[in-house]
Amino acid sequence: MLLPLLEIQELKVHIPLKSGLFGRKYSFVKAIDGVDFSIYENETFGLVGESGCGKSTTGKAIMRLIDPTSGKVSFEGKDISRLSRKEMRNVYKDIQLIFQDPYASLNPRKTAGDIIEEPMIINTTMSPEERKYRVQELLEVVGLNAYHSTRYPHEFSGGQRQRIGIARALALNPKLLIADEAVSALDVSVQSQVLNLLRQLQHERGLTYLFISHDLSVVKHISDRIGVMYLGRIVEQGSKKSIYKNPLHPYTQALLSAAPSINRTNERERIVLMGDLPNPINPPKGCPFHPRCFAKKTECESASPQFRNVGDEHYVACHLYN
């Protein structure tokens, strides 16, 4: 049986809210409220949903940039969710993060070469000459030139800065890359270049991706399987083909109906969701989507739907499919 490279089980991140002189906890923001998914080697798993649903928090919790409240994160069969910061340093060699903002994630006081070299200084015993050669190699891998190593971040375009971020993430030969809105800050033409680069690197290096995005067209282009997230939970999960051809959850149907299409024959009837995303401090009882759902039933207001397989590894959490 093929074991997943990364497995998430009942992951929760509840952020405490404090008030008063002594910082008394009075409530929690349920940023992630029980997330389950697995990613297999050489696969791209797309995590999609509107802003505030918990996508980026999930990526940060996997990397332990935010400590999970409960749940389990397993990498290569080992639970990493309770490791110390020192123990996590060994894990970071195999899991790297590509940040959303290609400028804010780069130190403006360091050159591109220094930024890419830094992980090697901290985590390897490579000599300065070996590191310099590796930096030049990585710059060329991501479509830049060796002479770019002496330039500072402000001297690059947005797409070039994101390429530097990718080169830094590749410095330690990781097995898993978490791309957190990695192309959302880029122009459309540059987005396609970076996406094609990521696919090429995956093919050449056997990389595995967790690709986080709110852009459905981008997720469709790069993903093998997709998880649709709403208010801290995954409400639908399946292969790219099954999600786009046969969306089951009303939220997924609404998202896909809003995606622009150049093919009129494939256009979906527009579904307009009423109201805003509920407050994660006090989420609705029952199904979290029911206040905005156009197909809700009476039981949706009181009973939480089970996340079930409805066939061909297509999972959905909705009372319509009981």
Score class of each variant (00 low, 15 high):
Thr124Pro: 13
Glu117Lys: 08
Thr125Asn: 15
Ile121Gly: 00
Glu140Ala: 10
Ile115Leu: 15
Val142Asn: 06
Asn145Val: 11
Glu129Met: 11
Val135Ile: 04
Val142Glu: 07
Tyr152Gln: 03
Gln136Arg: 15
Glu130Tyr: 04
Met120Cys: 07
Met120Lys: 06
Arg151Gln: 05
Glu130Ala: 06
Glu117Pro: 01
Tyr133Met: 05
Val142Pro: 05
Leu139Met: 04
Glu155Ala: 01
Glu118Lys: 08
Tyr133Pro: 00
Ile121Cys: 03
Gln136Gly: 15
Lys132Ser: 14
Lys132Pro: 08
Ile115Arg: 13
Arg134His: 06
Glu118Leu: 09
Met126Phe: 08
Ser149Arg: 12
Arg131Tyr: 10
Ala146Cys: 06
Thr150Gln: 10
Thr124Val: 05
Glu137Ser: 06
Ile121Ala: 01
Leu144Thr: 01
Val135Glu: 12
Glu140Met: 12
Val141His: 07
Ile115His: 14
Pro153Ser: 00
Glu140Ile: 03
Thr124Asn: 12
His154Phe: 08
Tyr152Cys: 02
Asn123Gly: 01
Glu118Ala: 09
Ile115Asn: 14
Val141Lys: 15
Ile121Gln: 13
Met120Val: 04
Tyr152Pro: 03
Leu138His: 09
His148Ile: 00
Asp114Pro: 02
Gly113Ser: 09
Gln136Pro: 04
Ala112Tyr: 10
Asp114Asn: 13
Glu137Cys: 02
Glu130His: 04
His154Met: 00
Glu117Arg: 08
Leu144Ala: 04
Arg151Pro: 00
Leu139Asn: 07
His148Asn: 08
Glu117Cys: 02
Tyr133Gly: 00
Arg134Val: 02
Ser127Val: 10
Glu137Asn: 05
Gly113Pro: 07
Thr124Leu: 10
Leu139Glu: 08
Asn145Ser: 14
Asn123Phe: 13
Glu130Arg: 02
Ala146Val: 11
Ile115Tyr: 15
Glu118Tyr: 09
Thr124Gly: 06
Thr125Cys: 09
Arg131Asn: 10
Glu117Gln: 06
Arg134Ala: 07
Ala112Asp: 10
Arg131Met: 12
Ile115Trp: 15
Pro119His: 11
Pro153Gln: 00
Glu155Cys: 01
Val141Thr: 15
Glu129Trp: 12
Ile116Met: 08
Arg131Val: 09
Asp114Trp: 13
Ile122Thr: 14
Met120Trp: 11
Arg134Pro: 03
Ile116Arg: 06
Thr125Leu: 13
Val142Ala: 04
Leu138Gln: 12
Thr150Leu: 03
Ser127His: 12
Ile115Glu: 15
Asn123Trp: 10
His154Pro: 00
Glu117Tyr: 01
Leu138Val: 02
Leu138Ile: 01
Glu130Asp: 13
Glu130Phe: 02
Pro128Thr: 05
Pro153Trp: 00
Ser127Met: 13
Pro153Val: 00
Gly143Tyr: 08
Arg151Trp: 02
Glu155Thr: 02
Gly143Lys: 07
Ile122Met: 09
His148Phe: 07
Gln136His: 14
Ala146Trp: 11
Thr124Asp: 13
Pro128Gly: 02
Gln136Ile: 11
